[in-house]
């Protein structure tokens, strides 16, 4: 029972900024607390950058979520990049293949309530995250 979201193509730095702004606007609209707004926007920034840098670009969909009990925000990040061969390694704090800090994936997972990842080598990666209002 989730409404359709808004899809944002992610192909440049500027698009990552657009994702942040879109997530911020919706996080305010569904009335997440200030700290939770900050967490979901930060997580979205990390994951959108991954879509761009590691996935070679893709799209992000931002939508309100409602499980009947609580409202929240759900974001999908999808790319057709190389995929992730070793998920355990990818979720290790400090591990990176791209010269970053290695905190994007592991850190983003800590900042959201639900985190789902589907990845296949050579096909791409789709990550879905949800943050619920308390």
């Amino acid at each position: 029972m989730n409404e359709p979201g808004r899809r944002i193509e992610v192909a440049s730095d500027q698009d990552v900024v657009r994702v942040r702004q879109q997530v911020r606007t919706l996080a305010v609209a569904v009335k997440l607390s200030l700290v939770d707004q900050t967490k979901i926007v930060t997580a979205a920034s990390e994951l959108a950058r991954n879509t761009l840098v590691y996935g070679g670009g893709g799209w992000v969909e931002v939508a309100p979520a409602d499980n009947g009990r609580r409202k929240g925000i759900r974001i999908v990040f999808s790319d057709h990049g190389p995929g992730i061969a070793d998920l355990d390694l990818a979720f290790t704090d400090g591990y990176t293949t791209g010269g970053g800090l290695g905190l994007g994936l592991s850190g983003a997972r800590r900042l959201v309530d639900e985190f789902d990842i589907v990845t296949a080598v050579g096909e791409g990666t789709t990550i879905t995250v949800t943050k619920w209002c308390r």
Binding site: V35, T38, K39, L103, G107, L111
Partner: peptide
């Protein structure tokens, strides 16, 4: 630094 930013940064691992 805003308080919410500090909380988020530390949870992010930074």
């Amino acid at each position: 630094m805003r308080p919410a930013v500090a909380i988020t940064l530390v949870e992010l691992g930074l």
